[in-house]
Amino acid sequence: MTDARPTLDPAHLNPAAPRPLHYAPPEGWTRVLLEVAWEGSAYGGWQSQPNAPSVQDTLHAALGRLGLDTTRPVAAGRTDAGVHAERMPAHVDLHAPQIPPERLPVALAHVLPRSVGVLRAQTAPTGFHARFSCTQRQYRYDLLQAPQPHPLEAGRSLWVRSPLNLAAMNAAAADLIGLHDFAAFATKEDRQTVRELQRLQVTAQPLGYGGRISLEVVGESFLRHMVRGLVGTLIAVGQGKLPPAQVAEILASTDRRRAGVNVPPDGLYFVGANYAGFPELWPTDLRP
């Protein structure tokens, strides 16, 4: 017995529409919730793929090295190649596990590479699915604004030499909040392109060698490269290459050619997720 993907009425474009909320592992198996973190530069993303190492395969192999009979792990979201994760919920189904869930993080630390870690684990509540039960996902994109690049920031942030107009960026971001068709910011997307963007905010903090500019992006789900397209567009606004008011016009056009470039994955982090139907789970510090 395996989970079935919930189906949506094609005429119902609201991503918050009702859908099945109860999932179950195969009979006789135990579903375990993991919180996974990784440094993504060595991986082709979370999802298993034939031409590059993946976090999913790396975690699955580590569970096997512990002698556990396990299904393939399932995460709250699929990340692009090079994207990092601070706190990614994932579940795995175990058959007659010999290791208690709460001891899995320590056991896995001995068999996982340094680039991947399991921060904590617990038995998943009844009906839980890491991907399909998720109601909110949060990403962050980090920029380094400094006269020169910093070697310790390589692969972890996008270097921007000139100062950015954060007020203009936040003004443009405000026009993107809400339920919209985000086709103008997606790449080669064959799914329906209506999504609800719950938060898009630009903040800054000083560093000893420049400044950290972070773009926080929160929604239930995202299109392919949508976050990177949003960030690229807002950077163009911050650089004065694009008037803030024009971003709303780009959104309405649904024309990908009018929006900014997809920024590199280096500065992108999956920060956390929420599950509204499962209040007993760990809080992920997402602001309401």
Rank of each mutant, 00 (worst) to 15 (best):
G67N: 06
S133D: 12
T135S: 14
A173I: 08
A146M: 05
T2N: 03
H180Q: 05
W46Y: 08
G238K: 03
A16P: 00
R5Q: 13
D190E: 11
A154N: 02
E196P: 02
P50D: 11
A62C: 13
V261L: 14
L230F: 03
Y141P: 00
G64S: 09
V271Y: 00
I213T: 11
V160D: 01
A167D: 15
L63Y: 09
E220C: 10
L108A: 11
G64Y: 09
T70H: 14
Q47Y: 06
N165A: 15
S41R: 15
L179M: 08
V194M: 11
S54M: 13
L112S: 13
R258E: 01
G210C: 06
L63A: 05
R257V: 09
A90T: 02
L68K: 04
E249P: 00
Y23H: 10
L286S: 01
V74F: 09
C134G: 09
V237Q: 06
A90D: 06
A42K: 09
L68V: 10
Q98E: 09
T233I: 13
A42Q: 10
A37N: 04
L166T: 06
G219W: 07
P149M: 04
W38C: 00
A24Q: 14
Q239W: 01
E216K: 04
V83Y: 04
Y269D: 02
A167C: 09
G117C: 12
P244S: 13
P10M: 02
Y141V: 05
G44N: 09
Q239N: 08
D69K: 15
D142W: 02
S54D: 08
S41V: 11
T123F: 04
P6H: 05
N51C: 09
L8A: 14
L94D: 09
T187P: 00
V263M: 08
P105D: 11
S54E: 09
G155S: 05
M226I: 13
F182K: 03
T2E: 10
P206R: 00
P147A: 15
Q138A: 15
P206I: 06
Q122C: 13
V263G: 02
A252P: 04
E86F: 11
L21K: 13
D181T: 03
R258S: 03
S221E: 03
W38P: 00
H91I: 08
Q239C: 05
Y269T: 02
H84R: 05
W46I: 12
G277N: 14
A61G: 04
G267S: 05
H225R: 14
D80V: 06
L281M: 04
H150T: 07
P283Q: 06
A62E: 07
T123I: 15
G67C: 03
L13W: 12
L94R: 07
L94H: 05
Q136N: 02
M226A: 10
H150G: 05
E153Q: 13
V263P: 00
L33T: 04
V36S: 01
Q145G: 00
